[in-house]
Simulated scan of single mutants.
Amino acid sequence: MAFENWEDAEEIAVYNERTDITADYESGAFYKRELPCILSLLKQIPLKEGDVIVVDGYVTLNDEGKMGLGGYLYEKLNEKYPVVGIAKNEFASPDNLRKSIYRGESKTPLFLTSKGIDPDLLKTKIKHMHGLYRMPTLLKKLDQLTRVI
Rank of each mutant, 00 (worst) to 15 (best):
M67C: 03
K48M: 14
L47S: 05
V52T: 14
P46K: 14
N62V: 12
I53E: 00
L47T: 04
D51K: 03
L69I: 14
D63A: 13
L61K: 05
V55S: 04
Y58A: 10
Y74G: 00
T60F: 00
V54G: 00
V59K: 05
I53V: 11
G57T: 00
G71V: 11
Y72Q: 10
I53L: 10
I45N: 12
L69D: 11
E75K: 12
V55I: 15
Y72G: 02
N62S: 12
D56H: 07
V54P: 01
I53N: 01
K66C: 14
E64D: 13
G68R: 06
G65P: 04
E49T: 11
Y74L: 00
N62T: 11
G71S: 13
G50H: 02
V55T: 07
E64R: 15
P46T: 14
V54E: 00
K48S: 15
G71M: 13
V59G: 08
Y72I: 06
G71K: 09
N62F: 07
G57P: 02
E64K: 15
I45M: 15
T60A: 01
G65I: 09
Y58M: 09
G65A: 09
L47P: 03
E49G: 13
Y74T: 02
G68L: 09
L47W: 03
V59P: 07
Y72T: 04
L73T: 02
Y74R: 00
M67T: 07
N62I: 10
G50S: 04
E75W: 01
V55M: 04
V55C: 09
E75L: 06
V55N: 08
K48P: 05
D56E: 11
G71Y: 12
K66I: 13
E64N: 13
G68H: 08
V59M: 08
G70K: 03
L47G: 02
L73C: 05
V59N: 06
K66Q: 15
T60I: 07
K66M: 15
L69H: 13
I53D: 02
D63M: 11
M67V: 04
M67E: 12
I45T: 12
L47N: 03
E64I: 10
V59A: 11
K48G: 13
V59D: 04
V52G: 08
V55F: 06
K66A: 15
L69C: 10
G70Q: 06
D63L: 09
L61W: 04
E75S: 05
N62C: 11
E64S: 14
I45V: 15
D63G: 12
D63S: 14
K48I: 14
L47F: 02
E49F: 06
L73A: 06
M67L: 15
N62H: 05
K48C: 13
Y58C: 08
V54C: 06
L61M: 11
E75M: 03
K66R: 14
K66E: 15
E75C: 01
G68C: 08
V59F: 05
G68M: 05
Y58I: 12
E49Y: 05
G68P: 07
Y72A: 04
L61N: 01
E64Y: 12
P46E: 15
L73K: 03
G70L: 02
G57F: 01
E49H: 08
G71T: 12
Y58F: 14
V52W: 09
Y72C: 09
V59Y: 07
D63C: 11
D63V: 08
D51P: 02
I53G: 00
D56Q: 10
